[in-house]
Design a protein around this nucleic acid. Structure first.
Lengths: 219, 219
DNA sequence: GAATTAACTTATGTGTACATTAATCTTAAA
DNA sequence: TTTAAGATTAATGTACACATAAGTTAATTC
């Protein structure tokens, strides 16, 4: 990872640590420790932690530090509820604003997804996660509404911490999402292509709800 | 203003400066300058600016600083579109979760609003703005969904910069909002009281749209 | 031995000096 | 006069030292 801006570097590094499940809920992220392990001073680390807290990825106790918020079923329902409806809006807006080229980009993503043959390997998991992120955040971008995009990005990442937390990543079992995902993704793109705002919104809402339900069969 | 946490102090102070129209679009908020005028070092100011930028209230140019984003009609449409739909969701959720006590609180707010006799005075403007903020953010809180609340708070404040920007604050003319506001507010509370989620959502969406339209008759 | 208080430890909070770089101004050549 | 290279400036970027307070351990009292 490049170190052009130490602030950004620290931000990305910390986000990665979080998403890689390096911390447990309630763990404090110590400025000093992170600074040492990332090879920088406390200043940029502190800045990055501030950002992450402002964005709601971390909680904070005054004079004590930033810590990983504890996941609860209720909180999960709240994120996914918010995400479901906001992504519904981004999909509708995307149907209104998408250019030919942007639609082609989306299609290319789903092609990549379909190309996965053995869904159980670590590599294909990684591809799936990356494609999925790009799919959702691209649609948010295509909505051409920076506010919806911002909220969507936030809800997406936040909900992803749950996905990683409960994921059978290490169990080797393929996720349902990897089977239903590409089909639903494709349907959404078709609706966007047809400029069917309502359908795009509905399909997206349903898609997010599916993700949530597959995840929380376990609860 | 108390100075328990210099970070928070700086944050609030800067937000106030922005909302009081102290800057023009495109203006840079200089760390050094703010630090001097607020009587603190650059550190907390820098932190606060970072937060505000992370939250999307300010834009940033690397190695150049944070600046007030330029308001455009399109951007205004985007904020209000986002706000309309997100507040629709908070209102629905509020109808599902509001306690008796929380509803009483909302009613008290509208009472204050109705008690304004001469809407043209500066004092009553201030009251109106404060009550309005409390009304919307309280409903967001009552939704009991921290994500919706966060996004709602953001969209609300961001849209408020437009309200302040285009406001006839200094023209002395009373706003339409001060006439239609209390009535619409009351209708929303009634829907919440009756646990009518759909109606609460619809009324809120309509209310926000009204605000937008009254504001942008001028465009 | 339990409970309260005092000292200590460790992490964040804050200020400040210095480094770096984007933008501007100056100067010299065409 | 125009243009381009170089110097200047004024801001952010970064590191670090010291202040402060939360949490913990040790000591003292009953």
């Amino acid at each position: 990872m490049a170190k052009a801006n130490l602030d950004e570097f620290a931000y990305q590094a910390i986000i990665n640590l979080i998403l890689e499940n390096h911390y447990r809920p309630g763990d404090f992220l110590l400025e000093t420790e992170l600074a040492k392990s990332l090879g920088l001073s406390r200043t940029p680390v502190r800045h990055a932690l501030g950002q992450l807290t402002a964005e709601g990825f971390l909680d904070k106790k005054k004079k004590k530090g930033c810590f990983i918020p504890s996941p609860t079923p209720e909180d999960a329902r709240n994120v996914f509820y918010a995400r479901e409806h906001i992504e519904g809006l981004t999909a509708s807006s995307a149907a209104r604003h998408a250019s030919e080229d942007e639609i082609r980009q989306l299609l290319r993503l789903v092609e990549k997804e379909k190309a996965i043959t053995d869904p159980a390997t670590r590599e294909s998991k990684r591809t799936y996660v990356s494609v999925n992120e790009n799919f959702h955040l691209n649609i948010a971008r295509i909505s051409k509404n920076r506010y919806l995009e911002q909220y969507c990005r936030h809800a997406f990442w936040r909900s992803n911490t749950y996905i990683f937390f409960f994921d059978k990543y290490y169990s080797g079992k393929p996720e349902e999402g990897q089977v239903t995902g590409p089909r639903q993704h494709m349907e959404i793109i078709r609706a966007i292509e047809n400029r069917n705002e309502e359908k795009a919104g509905n399909l997206m809402r349903q898609h997010v709800r599916t993700t949530f339900e597959q995840l929380f069969i376990k609860l």
